[in-house]
């Protein structure tokens, strides 16, 4: 190959990826870098944002227990949501996978259908059912005399976990579903022929093999729940804030952009650390199943 041709073939990959790379840099990396820089700027009620380099915002987040509580709550809700989706989603995917043709596609559609509906609409549905004295379910239960006061759902962590789990369920089911597709179709028969009962088959044969699917689903659900905005905003509102709604309020209500940027940066950094760390752990632990 001539030198010119070689040079051209070296340049080709760069030229081909350049448009996507530029878009990536333009809409993701630059705003991200600006947000990080913003978190080091100063802000005052009357002077606005001052482009200086100080650690005031970070110091405030580190020392004020209010922020610790916010972040702790955010991750508690994300963890509980993840557990709930795993406990319900994994069996759901397994049952779905065992259904015969027509029912399988029907129920798969039922599970994936909500992905087509906006998160806001889905969460508002919960608010319509359980929102205070006017919520449909609450009204019904109270008029029947089953309950005296509305079910505590709105502005509670329980409510937020349930609503988030509802929104996140398709991701868990899809992830476990993908793991189930990798199973040898005869694997259960093989275990059965060796004398294993149904419970043993699920515990010793199926569970260990779909665990990577459950865990990668868990990573998706966890990171989406920890950074979720719409559902916490509707269910929790101003009364029960999480990191995402807190950052939003700092940006748009208090107008303290640098502080909001610090909260957002911290949330991002924490999530990246958790996701990358647990992903590495999972891949090491399940090396032989992943191959």
């Amino acid at each position: 190959m001539s030198a010119v041709a070689e040079e051209r073939s070296l340049r080709a990959p760069w030229a081909l990826t350049a448009p996507a790379l530029m878009l990536f840099v333009g809409v993701l990396l630059i705003p991200l870098a600006m947000t990080v820089m913003l978190s080091f700027h100063d802000w005052g009620q009357y002077k606005g944002i001052e482009p200086v380099f100080i650690l005031k915002n970070w110091h405030e987040i580190a020392t004020d227990p209010y922020y610790a509580e916010m972040f702790w709550r955010t991750f508690r809700i994300a963890i509980l949501t993840t557990l709930l989706t795993a406990l319900l989603g994994a069996p759901e995917a397994y049952i779905l996978n065992r259904m015969s043709g027509r029912w399988k596609s029907f129920f798969l559609l039922v599970i994936l259908g909500p992905l087509l509906i906006s998160v806001v609409a889905r969460t508002l549905g919960w608010a319509l059912l359980f929102g205070g004295n006017n919520g449909l379910v609450n009204k019904l239960l109270m008029s029947l005399g089953v309950m005296r006061s509305p079910i505590p759902f709105m502005f509670t962590e329980t409510g937020m976990v349930i609503a988030l789990a509802h929104v996140m369920m398709p991701f868990m089911v899809l992830s476990v579903w993908a793991a189930l597709q990798r199973l040898d179709p005869q694997i259960e028969n093989a275990a059965m022929s060796l004398g294993a009962g149904p419970a043993t088959i699920i515990r010793r044969i199926i569970m260990p093999q779909i665990m990577p699917g459950v865990l990668s689903g868990a990573i998706i659900v966890f990171s989406l729940s920890a950074s979720a905005f719409a559902t916490p905003a509707i269910i929790g509102g101003r009364r029960l804030k999480v990191a995402a709604t807190l950052a939003y309020d700092e940006f748009l209500n208090t107008l303290n952009w640098p502080l909001g940027a610090a909260v957002a940066t911290l949330l991002l950094a924490a999530l990246v650390l958790i996701v990358v760390g647990s992903n590495a752990l999972i891949e090491r632990r399940y090396a032989e199943v992943f191959r």
Partner: peptide, 19 residues
């Protein structure tokens, strides 16, 4: 029941337990 028949079976795909 198949689990109690005590037959040995080798499957075309082997169906080994990968974990």
């Amino acid at each position: 029941h198949p689990a109690k028949r005590g037959l040995g079976i080798v499957f075309q795909s082997y169906a080994l337990f990968p974990h």
